[in-house]
């Protein structure tokens, strides 16, 4: 059981690493179709990463060692965070070691290093991107934690597997869940750098956040950073899909249940990715100084979720 559990955990981590580029490719493909373009294939982000891994890595001569280790720190921290979020099965050892606050912390660590590396080389864009990223995250993280507290309060656990088990055993339509879902979706859009907060497909200097920080990277460093960003997108997708729509996830570590869980999560992520592409097609990127309004809406939604849990559900 235990060795099988560890094996399944490793398998789940591998699934994150391998499926993340495909998810981004799927989003891009749907977006292109919606905009009447043919678009690149679903495999394009994976091809990009593969190509970059084979290219020569150049580092600016003003760069400190921090600049070199950042891609590895970011990639490993993001992957660790992803391994904690249940993708295929709930009762895995990897989910038991840490809870969702650790996930937020690991993502924060990755962001911290990325912002330092952005400022490290000393170019104007890097510093600008870093300061913007810090501003967005300082608004997004309270909203994320507030939504998490709402979930944890009803599930009596901050452990993700515990929350999902609670959702599976006691599936009711509750106002707090609805508001937490809305808040988490807004936070996920901001944290993964999608429209309307950041535009992932442009190098237009005045609008970029994430691209501005990784502007000086090349070769395998760039590949790792892009791969980490893809994993982060998939992490938030899996978080939303499995917490709010947990049906189909494997609760027993058997191969059949795992295959079922795989099919379920692929279906859910396809739907979520199509929804993201649709919202990016109809919405325009907002002015950067409107971002606090967007994220304070997320915070307000999470807060109302928490209040409605206390007011409406606890006495019930």
């Amino acid at each position: 059981m235990n060795t099988a559990g560890i094996a399944f955990s490793v398998l789940q981590g591998l699934a994150y690493v391998l499926l993340a580029p495909l998810l981004l490719g799927w989003v891009g493909k749907v977006k292109a179709t919606l905009q009447n373009r043919r678009g690149a294939g679903v495999l394009q982000p994976a091809r990009n990463v593969y190509k970059l891994l084979g290219k020569e890595t150049r580092v600016a001569h003003t760069a400190s060692p921090l600049f070199r280790i950042t891609p590895y720190v970011v990639f490993v921290a993001t992957l660790l965070a992803a391994a904690i979020v249940p993708l295929l099965a709930t009762n895995l050892p990897s989910a038991a070691v840490a809870d969702i606050i650790v996930v937020a912390g690991l993502l924060g660590l990755a962001r911290f290093f990325l912002a330092l590396a952005g400022m490290d080389v000393g170019t104007a864009f890097g510093g600008m991107g870093a300061s913007r990223e810090m501003m967005v995250s300082s608004f997004a993280e309270p909203a994320l934690l507030m939504a998490v507290f709402t979930l944890a309060w009803s599930a009596h656990s901050t452990n993700l597997a515990g929350i999902i088990d609670h959702q599976l055993s006691d599936a009711r339509l509750l106002p707090s869940m609805l508001f937490a879902l809305a808040s988490l979706v807004l936070v996920a859009v901001a944290e993964t750098g999608r429209i309307p907060v950041d535009n992932p497909s442009t190098h237009l200097e005045l609008t970029m956040i994430h691209e501005a920080m990784i502007l000086e990277y090349s070769g395998r460093h760039l590949a790792l950073l892009e791969w980490a960003a893809q994993i982060r997108l998939m992490l938030y997708g899996a978080l939303i899909a499995n917490i709010f729509f947990p049906w189909g996830i494997a609760t027993r570590p058997s191969l059949l249940a795992l295959a079922m869980g795989m099919a379920a999560i692929v279906g859910k992520l396809l739907i979520l990715g199509a929804g993201l592409a649709l919202s990016e097609t109809v919405a325009a990127k907002m002015r950067f100084f409107k971002t606090p309004i967007f994220l304070s809406l997320a915070f307000l939604l999470a807060l109302i979720g928490l209040l409605s849990h206390v007011i409406l559900e606890s006495g019930g």
């Binding site: 009711r172 339509l173 509750l174 106002p175 707090s176 609805l178 508001f179 939604l301 109302i304 209040l307 409605s308 409406l312 559900e313 019930g316």
Partner: peptide
């Protein structure tokens, strides 16, 4: 039960 939870959701939306 479904109607009850629907009422709660609508009430929360009124607050929103």
């Amino acid at each position: 039960e479904v109607i009850q939870s629907l009422i709660l959701i609508l009430a929360a939306l009124v607050l929103f």
